[in-house]
Design a binder for these strands. Structure first.
Length: 428
RNA sequence: GCGGUCGUAGUGUAGUGGCCUAGCACAGCGCUCUGUGGCAGCGCUAGCGGGAGUUCGAAUCUCCUCGAUCGCCCCA
């Protein structure tokens, strides 16, 4: 026996079962219609790329590149990787297909699986679905605003009611290096009051200290210089405009001077959108993104200021289930069951199915069951109200018996009137 | 990658070294009931995540491993 050998999903992978597809369907629909409304165009990029595409912009020392990327060498010796996110692939495509020759900005969106070899946890998988929106070739603050707005709209449309937007500006190549020095100096002089993690961060990624939850560090960082006070004139102006845009849209944002993102390519605006939970499990950001003015150039394109967002579909889906935001999609399920008895009826019923299909009315059946009893049982389990009984008697005399499962009342309908009569029954 | 908790039929659970041939509920399948479902009765299918060890004896103790979950790192 091989029954001992049990296969299970790999760590961090999971199946999306038929009963959960409603969520996915709803999310897809929401993303599709919202992006369409704001004239984003769908693009699909490959799941694998040269590793450099991902590592160049994200920063070699970032965790995503350093330890979370599914990368491997092909037989031909190429170093390739499964995409950990969409942005670099889309940027690559923008450059490769000369999209800078199109009217700018180019607004793109996509959706699909991404991969990170991280330690799996709830709402955090090694293969997960993400949607991504990117606007390439426009530096104006209204783009940042629109990206945030669209992300927010999608989440709101999905039924989330306690959304909050956290926003910050992390400057650009002009002002960020300077601020890094300032803040490193500040923390260095107070090194002894930092937690051990932060003492390590001081070397590797000083900006991250701002994110620390340790109480010790909270006190230290309360007096720390804030990046928004050290932005260059250009970044400052840009950030102010983004906020003005959000005010105009009346989006519920809050400034978070400690918001720092893990990827190196971000410049200026960074943001995250959360659903505040009353008590339940704290999920990470449902959507997050920002501006990446230097990435296109870094990957070999022209100087192309851009802005984008990643939307965590898997995470959203799970949170919807938890919050019982189940979309109602009863419509697709059949409301009619056709029970057939005997060879003659079975043969004749095929034509009936065809007529119903042409009328776009879904009809359930259970060909494998012979007895009327078990077919009715089936209809009952499927919670179908109308059962059409088509047996020997009916087939010979050209009529069909309609049973209302709710009341138990039955009536006979002429065979050629069945479809039209059922059509009107269902409409109610 | 590091630390904590957990893992019994499809699902939810009982079980704390011998009363376990692993119990119960729901679901599934079948029969009672070959043209009339929901109820009921009876039956069937199906499980100790995997492996090694301790022991006369292991679902129960130990170790390894796989997975889940929580925290950290980090992040959608």
């Amino acid at each position: 026996m091989t029954s001992k050998l049990k296969y299970q999903t790999l760590s961090g992978m999971h199946d999306i079962l038929p009963e959960d597809q409603v969520y996915l369907k709803k999310i897809k629909k929401s993303v599709e219609s919202t992006t369409n409304y704001y004239s984003f165009q769908r693009i699909d990029v490959p799941v694998i790329e040269y590793m450099d595409v991902f590592s160049k912009g994200a920063g070699l020392s970032s965790d995503i590149v350093e330890k979370e990327m599914y990368s491997f060498k092909t037989k031909g010796g190429d170093l390739i990787a499964l995409r950990p996110e969409f942005t670099p692939g889309i940027v690559r495509s923008y450059i490769e297909h000369g999209m800078y020759n199109l009217p700018q900005p180019v607004k793109l969106w996509t959706m699909g699986p991404c991969f990170r070899h991280d330690r799996p946890q709830k709402g955090r998988y090694r293969q997960f679905l993400q949607a991504s929106l990117e606007v390439l070739g426009d530096k104006s603050a209204s783009i940042d605003g629109q990206i945030i707005q669209v992300s927010y709209d999608i989440l709101k449309d999905l039924g989330f009611k306690n959304l909050s937007i956290q926003i910050n500006s992390i400057g650009d190549s002009e002002c960020r290096p300077y601020f890094k020095k300032v803040i490193t100096g500040y923390f260095k002089s107070r090194k002894s009051s930092l937690c051990s993690d932060c003492q390590r961060r001081l070397k590797e990624n000083p900006l991250r200290i701002l994110d620390c939850k340790e109480e010790k560090c909270q006190r230290v960082k309360a007096g720390a210089p804030q990046i928004i006070d050290h932005l260059c004139e250009n970044c400052h102006k840009h950030f102010k405009e983004v906020l003005e845009f959000l005010d105009e849209l009346e989006l519920p944002y809050s400034l978070n001077p400690y918001l720092v993102r893990g990827l190196d390519y971000y410049t200026k605006t960074v943001f995250e959108i959360y659903e505040k939970s009353e008590s339940g499990t704290a999920y990470g950001a449902l959507a997050s993104g920002g501006r990446y003015d230097g990435l296109v150039k870094l990957l070999g394109g022209r100087d192309t200021p851009s802005c984008g967002v990643g939307i965590g579909i898997s995470r959203i889906m799970e949170l919807m289930m938890e919050k019982e935001l189940k979309p109602k999609t009863k419509q697709e399920e059949p409301e009619i069951f056709l029970a057939q008895l005997g060879q003659l009826a079975k043969r004749k019923s095929l034509k009936l199915f065809d007529e119903f299909r042409e009328a776009k009315i879904p009809v359930a059946e259970s060909f494998s069951k012979d007895s009327l009893r078990s077919q009715l049982k089936m209809a009952d389990k499927m919670e179908i109200r109308w059962v059409l009984i088509f047996g020997q008697k009916e087939a010979l005399e050209e009529f069909i018996t309609l049973r209302d499962m709710k009341s138990g009342v039955q009536k006979e309908i002429k065979l050629d009137k069945v479809v039209s009569e059922m059509k009107s029954k269902i409409k109610k």
